[in-house]
Write a protein that binds this DNA or RNA. Sequence first.
DNA 1: GTGAAAGCGCTAACAA
DNA 2: TTGTTAGCGCTTTCAC
Lengths: 338, 338
Amino acid sequence: MSIQGKKPRVTLQDVADVAGVNRVTASVALGRSPRGGTRVSEATRRRVLEVAHNLSYTPNVLAQALHNRRTHIVGYYAGYETLNASHPFAAAILNGLQRSCRRHQQDLLLFGSFERDSDADIYAALLGGKIDGLVMLPTPLSPALDKLYTSPLPIVGIANAHPAIPCVVVDDADGSRQIAAHLVRRGHRRILYRTHRERRTSVQRRLEAFCAAAGDHAMTVAVSQTDDDHRLTEAEIEMLTAARDRRPTAVVCWMDLCAHAVIAQCEALGLQVPADVAVVGFDGVPPVLPPARTLTTVSAPWTEVAMAAVDHLLALLRGDKAPPETVLPVTLHVGDTA
Amino acid sequence: MSIQGKKPRVTLQDVADVAGVNRVTASVALGRSPRGGTRVSEATRRRVLEVAHNLSYTPNVLAQALHNRRTHIVGYYAGYETLNASHPFAAAILNGLQRSCRRHQQDLLLFGSFERDSDADIYAALLGGKIDGLVMLPTPLSPALDKLYTSPLPIVGIANAHPAIPCVVVDDADGSRQIAAHLVRRGHRRILYRTHRERRTSVQRRLEAFCAAAGDHAMTVAVSQTDDDHRLTEAEIEMLTAARDRRPTAVVCWMDLCAHAVIAQCEALGLQVPADVAVVGFDGVPPVLPPARTLTTVSAPWTEVAMAAVDHLLALLRGDKAPPETVLPVTLHVGDTA
DNA sequence: GTGAAAGCGCTAACAA
DNA sequence: TTGTTAGCGCTTTCAC
């Protein structure tokens, strides 16, 4: 193992000293300056460049950032949600953020879940100046974090719309309508819609659009609201195991992971999917591993959402403005579960 | 949408001005200083704190970092490999890094793949001072990047051992031996071992240990080396479809994703898994979605590897030293494919 | 207990 | 074409 962290970093002053010029001259010669073309003589420039190379000089981006007020770091904050990269949704977002950041030569700083920290700490971490702007997943925040939206920090939201910031979302309502239309075609009339308790806009929009569309198609919808996406409630089990002519013939879940959990539990209850109950999800991130069941789901372009979010954020940083709400289209993918 | 990026940040000077004290006094009063307890009067301190709170003052971490030479940011660089969060391995690593970073109050900066950038650019990005230390996936680097190992930047490697830096790896050799033992018990004698062309130490160790163990167990091993983990080569297909008494009865893959691809293709060729060919993987990251087949694989604690890496990195930053090679144990998980 | 001075490394503006 | 001055926001050292 090498002697790490021992050598002091090579500074611009060092380069200037060796090259026998002023710090500033060296700085300009290194070419990042505006009209550096005429400022430094060709001879000097070459000398400085050579010295810099010999010394393996790398500019201290911190000092640059302090001066320019630009770190070229974009932050991602998943709200109170843990940023679990194993979660297909989170992974898709992360991939999009990375792609876009690379394209724009920005670095990506991940803010994980802060369960333990106070809101003040989160606020400080986010506004400490490490990042130029923030992409976030707007969830119902505590009041203390509402300050975020009026802070000097440029913010773009994804997945959930929020009136205070530009947001990039998918067409939740349309997805729900597509699901409803599909189920009607398959002859379903009694639906169990499984939603999430937290009032995120995307969750709400999916639910409302589905209920509306279901009404138009003369389907009856029982709505089940829960915190735990992975376990059926007593009430749900009771419904699903009721008499054949009364129980719902399809379960629509607000997101894929929930749908997969439902499938597993239905099968455990002796219900065939989709023969006895059809199951539909929402998100449609293609799995890397071949899954047991190909879920019928609304496929949403989460990677593109993340990329658009970074684009908009950088527009804000340039002083341009970003559209309040960008809605990306979704598609229904019919699998073997509904 | 709010007026973003307009308000100037509130600075320590602002706080000091309003509180009617010197910048320094304010700084000390804010309590980050060593013996601030006695330095500032209780009255002053309270006043400063109150003003700071009223103004929603957040210290500029950049300025702090410039002074302290500590950004409290840990970087992760996946080498030339794309950091694909959908890849179970990458996701497990990311989760581990995040957990450990949060625990240690560090931020995590992701360096994506730099395919397009020159080595010099990578080097500059990594050494620019944004990060205090780096966790990386040592892969056979270009000579230009070898400088990284002798640079002042503290580095800890994961997954692949590298003599120049402290590394955290899993017990590749033991995993291979467990696989060999399992296959012998199941009566396999002719094995196809599918390895990767790039000479990473983990890949090498798995291969060598497997061949050695296979030899001990009197199994014959055909080694197939390839760039493309997802597609069987002509030669492999030929082997697998040879006469029953000559073809390999088991395929051992250097990693899970490869194994899943092999399974799919074997089945496409009309070969039953595991009846006609058994398939074994390596990595064993538990999938979030229920997979079609439960792979027989060596399960490695990648999340813990990542966490240990951050721990060691922070030890280096403290001036302590980290063990050259930390080896974490693995376990064979017998699924339904071998 | 408090203020003044110096410096972290860099760059924009102004002189020479 | 080059050097000087000043300042980004903060903290540590040393006088008062």
